[in-house]
Structures are given as C-alpha cells and as structure tokens.
Computed example of a mutant assay.
Amino acid sequence: MKIGARQFTILVILVTIGDSLLVLPAIPAFEAKQDAWIAAIVGLIIGLVVIYLICTVGKLYPQLTLIQYSEKILGKWPGKMVGFLFLCYLFVSISTHTREIDDFFTTEILPNTPMMAISFLFIGIVVMAAILGLEVIARSAELFFPIFLTLFFVLIVCLTPQIELQNLQPIFEGGMKPILRGSFATTAFPFMEDVVFLMIFPNIIQAEKIKKRFIIGAMLGGIVLILFITVSILVLGPYDVANSIYPGYALSKKINIGNFIQRIEIILAVMWLLTTYIKVAFYFYIMNLGLVQIMEIKNGKNLPFALPLGLIVIVFSLLVSPHIAYIIHVISAYWPFLDGVYSVLLPLLLLFVYWLRKIFKKQDKWSS
C-alpha cells in the first residue's frame, strides 16, 4: 500500500503529538519549573537532529524497511535479532498506551466501567485499522487532522482569559541544568519514537520528499506541544502542572467564559484520544508488518497475527502497571533511555556497520 507525501506529513504530526497532550507537560515542569516551555523548545531542536539521523539511515536502502536492511547490514541472524527486539519495544509501547487509556477513562470519564471492556473496544478498532492497512490509517489521520486542529484552536482560545504571565517568571531561575533535564523528555516522547517511520519509507509515493516532509511534520507536531506546555504553565502555574497526574485534563477544566462556557474538558479528551489512536494503530500495523517480514511470510499482506497479537496486548496492558502513577514514574525516569536505544543507538550502529562494510569492499577491490 502506498501513501502520498501529504498523508505522510499529517501522519508524522499526529504520531509525534501522540499521547503527549495528557501527561507530557508534567515532566518538563517537574524538572524545569516555569522554564518548561524553554525545555520544550530545546527538545524540539534536539529532536529535529534525531529526525535528521533517522532520515539518514532511511536513505541507505529507501526501498527496504528497517527490519529488512538491518538483516542486510548486520547479517541475517543478528539483523533478525535486532528486528525482534525492535518489535518488542513496539509491543511494550502499545500495551503502555492502552493502559494509559484504560486508566484515564476509568478514573476521569467512565469510573464504573471495567478496564477490560475499554481495552477490548480500543484494541478492537486498532486491530481493524491494522488489517485494513497503512492507507486506511493514513486516510483516517487525514480525516481526523482538521478536527484535531479545530479542537486545539478552540481550547487555546477558551483558555486565553485564564492566562497569567507572571507564571513564567523568573526566567532561567535554576540555570540550564534543569532545562536540559526537562528537555530529555520533550525530545524522547515526541521525536525519538518517530523512528518507527523507517518501516514505511518504501510505501511513500514521492520518495524524494520524505526527508523534507518528515522534518516539517515533526516540527509542526513539536510546535503544537510547545504551545500546549506553555499554555499549561501560564494557566495552571508550574507547581500545579508538575504535580498533576493529568495536567492537560486539569488545564481544560479551567475553561470558564462568563460563567457560561465551562466544564468542556471533553475537548481535551477527544483530542488526546484521536492522536493516541492514530499512534497506537500505526504502531500496531508496523509491529504486525515487522513480524511478517522477520518470519519471511510471503502472503502476509493481511497480517495473520493481528487478532492474536491484539488479544495479547489486552492482557499485557492490564499487567504492565498497577496504576497510572507507576506508569508516569517509569515514563519520566526510564522510558527516554529506551527510546534513545532504538532511535539513536540503533541508527548509529547501522550507519557505522554500513560504513565499515563499504570501506572493506573498497579495500577488496583495490587488493584484487
């Protein structure tokens, strides 16, 4: 299945935003306090460097996926092992995102609904999207994108009366160290996780536009997150943002225009659900595609493992964490390192081995 450059850009924007709207503002605010917005800007700059690295690796073999050229560069079995570990990373990520949705809905919106029911409903449509294929996921992103932009604009406009500029002061109170610590999260979650797009480079029609579109999509997604983190600090203050489980949801509760337009936090919930769904559906499709490629199944276009993998994700999502506070602790303390392994170390390893192979081939030609 092929997708156009425009669809690719929109997909990058929504996947970059992903689940970050709900919980991300708390992590840089905890580290950098009122300078969290600066940490987000630093994260965007570093994140674009990571995207450039990802594009550089993708250009080595533009007609192959990450798993296919890992075998070509590292050798068959080492490449398969790297591919399998990459799929495990996607599996854990999908399960964690599903658990986030379970926890959010059972604590904030549907408190009397069992987690299992929410998991079944969510993973059911994710499995359906994966089976229908990349083109359907990209078209869904194209359909949801204007809805997301409209809701985001409405949210920001409605929060404007609640803005207090003194919440950003004093600037650089703690120096650059806390800002750099906060930027680690704002680099990892939005941008490092975009390494998964290396699996669809062969499916993009206008291959010459991939790099430009990838950088534009990541930049636009990053700008949305910078604006959202900044508004969170301006409205709630750094202390409330840093100590809230769902700072994005708490932010939307502050909307109050003339004591008439208020309690419309469902806007944030819908925005978050749209971007998280696109991200999880895309990840799930890639995980199934990667498994088919590792096992070298010739007729694997219908993704025969989609349904059983969906059931396994449902079970694992209930076991991955005892509660949302544990997930937030793991996400803030350890997850960025996991993202770094697959988005920075793995591309650097592939580039290094590719470079070595090229040098040895030249030496063999000269010696012969």
Rank of each mutant, 00 (worst) to 15 (best):
V42R: 07
D19M: 01
M176Q: 08
V196I: 14
T160C: 05
P202G: 11
T56H: 07
S367E: 01
Q206C: 02
I314D: 07
I54H: 11
G300P: 14
E71Y: 04
L311K: 13
I245D: 02
L307Q: 01
P304D: 00
L121E: 00
G340P: 02
R6G: 03
I257C: 05
F337R: 05
F153N: 05
L220C: 07
I359Q: 06
E296H: 13
F8T: 03
L53Q: 03
L132D: 02
T98V: 12
K254Y: 02
L159M: 08
N256T: 06
A40K: 14
T186D: 03
I171R: 09
T230M: 11
I17D: 05
L251Q: 01
K254D: 02
I179G: 01
K80Q: 13
L44Q: 06
L60S: 12
V157P: 15
I255H: 03
L155N: 04
I267S: 10
H323L: 06
I46S: 13
C158F: 15
V280M: 04
F152R: 00
A281C: 09
Q293K: 04
L21W: 01
L90W: 04
G75C: 06
L90N: 06
E164V: 15
L24Y: 01
G18C: 10
L289E: 06
L289R: 14
T9R: 08
L53Y: 06
F214A: 06
E135A: 11
L60C: 14
T187K: 07
L251R: 00
V344E: 02
L236F: 01
T275M: 02
P146E: 03
F145A: 11
T275A: 07
S317V: 04
F91Q: 04
A36P: 05
I38C: 13
L273I: 11
I267G: 08
A26I: 03
D103Y: 01
R263S: 05
I266Y: 09
P161C: 01
L11T: 11
E31Q: 14
F282E: 03
R6W: 13
L338C: 08
K212L: 08
I266A: 14
V57S: 04
N203S: 12
F153I: 14
E208G: 13
T56L: 12
K59Y: 04
W366Q: 15
G182V: 01
S140E: 10
L143E: 06
I312V: 14
N259W: 10
L90P: 09
P238C: 06
L220F: 13
E142M: 13
G300S: 07
I233P: 04
A40L: 12
K211Y: 05
Y239T: 12
L155W: 09
T186F: 11
A306K: 15
V235P: 13
V196M: 07
A306M: 14
